[in-house]
Amino acid sequence: MAKILLISANAVFAGDLKSQLERHPDWEVREEYDSDGVFDAAVVDDDAEKLRSLHEKLLQTPLFLLWSGETELPEDEGVRVVRKPFRLEALIDALHTAVNAAPPAGGELPLCGCRLNVAAREVCYPDGREPIKLTERETAILKYLYKAGDKIVGKAELLAEVWGYNPEATTHTVETHIYRLRQKIERPEQVIMTEDNGYRLKKENA
């Protein structure tokens, strides 16, 4: 389930747009920014200052500014300006592309001491050693932790986002997968940090 943040001072407009976006079966739209939240995309309505503030907090999240102002705003990296009035279908298509976009650098995500090739589901190392093959679940765990940035992701959150509805899965399931994943990829650099009953990725220079 992809999470889309929608920020608008116009409650009627926000409600209408939210209902349209949530017709997509795999999208959940939230209208409040939560510092603990992880979003796949964000839409800001006519508020350039709010957009700049979010851009500093959601560095890895595609941002869309719905803009009716006379001033032409430059599109920074990761930010797309959508002029009003706009076609709803065009916005939905752009969001769909952003949410499902391939990760940067040819499908690879930089981790501490290695890189995750999402498409191939393997971890590659700069010294040329044999890549480590991952399961689909292990790849999803690393992708979600990467998207979370510096935020500590709790076990319950990771369970809900990666496993979804699975009555047989528990937080112990998460612990077991994290343990096995660390055994596979941490050679010797630590990649996954355990903190405050949750997890985050180690920074490259930490």
Rank of each mutant, 00 (worst) to 15 (best):
T61V: 09
T61Q: 07
P62Y: 10
L63I: 07
L63Q: 07
F64G: 00
L65S: 06
L65Y: 03
L66V: 14
G69F: 08
E70I: 11
E70M: 12
T71R: 15
T71N: 13
T71F: 12
T71M: 14
T71H: 13
T71C: 09
E72N: 12
E72I: 14
P74N: 02
E75K: 06
E75D: 05
V79M: 10
R80C: 07
R80Q: 10
R80D: 01
R80E: 08
R80I: 04
V82S: 05
K84E: 15
P85W: 13
P85Q: 05
F86Q: 03
R87Y: 15
L88A: 10
L88R: 11
L88C: 13
L88D: 08
E89I: 11
E89K: 15
A90I: 08
A90H: 15
A90D: 14
A90W: 15
A90G: 11
L91S: 06
I92P: 02
I92A: 09
I92R: 12
D93T: 12
D93N: 14
A94R: 11
A94W: 06
H96M: 04
T97Q: 13
T97E: 14
V99N: 02
N100R: 11
N100C: 02
A101M: 03
A105H: 14
A105K: 11
G106H: 04
G107S: 12
E108H: 11
E108A: 11
L109E: 00
L109Y: 04
P110L: 10
P110T: 05
P110K: 04
L111E: 00
C112T: 13
C112Y: 10
C112G: 04
G113Y: 06
C114M: 09
L116M: 08
L116A: 08
N117F: 06
N117M: 10
N117E: 14
N117T: 12
V118D: 03
V118L: 05
V118Q: 02
A119L: 11
A120G: 06
A120E: 13
A120L: 13
E122F: 06
C124V: 15
C124A: 15
C124K: 13
Y125R: 05
Y125V: 09
P126C: 05
R129E: 13
R129D: 12
E130L: 14
E130A: 14
P131F: 06
P131E: 08
I132Y: 06
K133R: 15
L134V: 07
T135W: 01
T135G: 09
E136C: 07
R137G: 04
E138I: 01
E138C: 02
T139Y: 00
A140N: 09
A140T: 07
I141C: 01
L142T: 00
L142H: 01
K143I: 09
Y144H: 10
L145P: 00
L145T: 01
K147W: 04
K147R: 10
K147M: 10
K147N: 08
G149V: 03
K151S: 05
I152E: 03
I152F: 06
V153D: 01
G154Q: 02
E157G: 00
L158Q: 01
A160Y: 09
V162K: 01
W163C: 10
W163R: 12
G164S: 09
G164A: 05
G164H: 08
N166Q: 11
E168W: 04
E168R: 14
